[in-house]
Design a protein around this nucleic acid. Sequence first.
DNA 1: CAGATGACTCCCA
DNA 2: CTGGGAGCCATCT
Length: 126
Amino acid sequence: MSNEVPAIYERIYLLVRRIPAGMVSTYGDIGIMAGCDGRTVGAALAALGPEARDVPWQRVISRDGTISTRGLRQEELLAAEGVRFDRQGRVVLAGQRWHGPDPAWAAARRFQPLPPFDDAEQLELF
DNA sequence: CAGATGACTCCCA
DNA sequence: CTGGGAGCCATCT
């Protein structure tokens, strides 16, 4: 058995810790920056367990704004932080999707930049 | 090394 | 909306 946390996981945690309360990021976005697949990001967060205190895992959601976890009360945690949802219960990515850490901070740790995206995308509330 | 397994994402029916 | 299937990547057997 390997008891040590994989290096790529540590890099993922480092990034997730930069996501501000009230904002969210996607598995894919974190993966792009950390240099791995979105599935790997999910595996890294799953390895933390719901009691993780130093990593705001709840701020990482699916690309379409849905919550892919079950029984972890992720939606409640996000709502408590002020994250807005649309009528269908999906997180409104427009304006709440994190654009990534400070460029200098990221460059210093060799994290890849996140391709720019339009904050007005998928804006279809009401 | 081969296979199985995911908190993924995209595309199409 | 649902369901399949193809890529994808790291980890664990």
